[in-house]
Design a binder for these strands. Structure first.
Lengths: 204, 204
DNA sequence: ACCTGAACACCGTTCAAGT
DNA sequence: ACCTGAACACCGTTCAAGT
């Protein structure tokens, strides 16, 4: 048939991303296929390969947007106060709130793996790493000068730990005995981990 | 064609599980297919449906074995001492060691999701929940009588948090800046979380 | 330069037909 | 009672052919 020129490359890219996000939200990662995205935007499957490297590429771009939305929210909280504990608690709450607002999109972030032969592209780990920046900034006041390495580690421990809680709650693999919510567990984690850091810093 | 009777039902079940574990270890979850398992054990694909509900069922049974192996190791550590901190540190190390020994099997535990329409079967969450028991036993001494709910929560927070660290390290989504290992992060988590619990219990 | 649609090499699952 | 192999309804990806 040949080119149609109904849409610019940018418009087609955006349409595909929007359709993918819509399918993902409704059907989950296993319901997101090249053929269905193509159908939704009124193009043939092959066309998507003119605009994305492959399905993994498309999913990663959608996931990056999901991560970026949380990042924006965390950056907003970063400036709010200088007390680490309430700021970090708020960041944990924001993370959980984002997940509750779009559980299927976040499941996709957690569940997606590259197809058999391929590696995660270079640009993606950086998008995740950005999330540590606000956390590091918020936890910073607990550490004195010259303790940057400790601060970096603490931010990574705390955020990874929080990720563990949210991902188990999300996948319902955590038996939430009598009235425990993700928020309760996250509060407990942040509170006690920070208390532990404080104690160590005070004693040492 | 008809029945062959080359193997008993039990033998065939075991052969399929072994083949699945072997394929999983070598190729990962995306390389594990009904057709390949069938080929490996010298039966037709349809035969596997006489012995397993479907591929999800088979994967879950393999995953349960992976979980059970860690459980056995944790139970061994449980009896070793009564000081919570060293026991819990050892448990965290054991978890990481199991993952390092069989990263593809553990990836399968973390990555597997049920096919579109189906729910996780009843028996599976219980297999995960068992892992909390040794953790709860180890952390117990920190809590006084009447604080069982706090102890339960702490065990779940700590283990979920540890899971977050190991799963991010495993999927290489954690940028391990200059020489941070999963062991380092886990030690930091356990140490500071327990210190925080202690402080709260001491102060309150 | 871009799009189509058929083709290729796969999937999980089902089931009539055989023994 | 159990196994086979073809069939069904899908996949992601490629690419010659068209405009």
């Amino acid at each position: 048939m040949g080119r149609r020129n109904d849409h610019t490359a940018e418009a087609l890219h955006a349409m595909a991303m929007a359709a993918a996000r819509r399918l993902l939200a409704k059907e989950g990662l296993s319901g997101l296929t090249v053929r269905r995205i193509a159908q939704e935007i009124g193009y043939s499957p092959g066309t998507l390969y003119n605009h994305f490297a492959n399905l993994d590429d498309l999913v990663l771009q959608v996931n990056a947007e999901t991560l970026d939305q949380l990042l924006a929210r965390l950056r907003g909280l970063e400036q709010q106060g200088s007390e680490p504990l309430p700021v970090l608690r708020a960041m944990a709450r924001a993370y959980i709130a984002e997940i509750r607002a779009a559980p299927q999109l976040w499941s996709a972030v957690f569940e997606h793996r590259m197809a058999k032969g391929s590696e995660l592209p270079d640009w993606f780990p950086g998008r995740i790493a950005r999330l540590f920046e606000p956390v590091e900034a918020a936890i910073g006041p607990l550490f004195g000068p010259g303790c940057e390495a400790d601060c970096r580690r603490a931010a990574r421990v705390l955020w990874s730990a929080l990720h563990g809680i949210t991902s188990l709650v999300l996948s319902q693999k955590l038996d939430l005995a009598t009235g425990l919510s993700a928020e309760d567990l996250a509060d407990d984690l942040v509170t006690n981990y920070l208390a532990g850091l404080n104690r160590k810093l005070t004693n040492g």
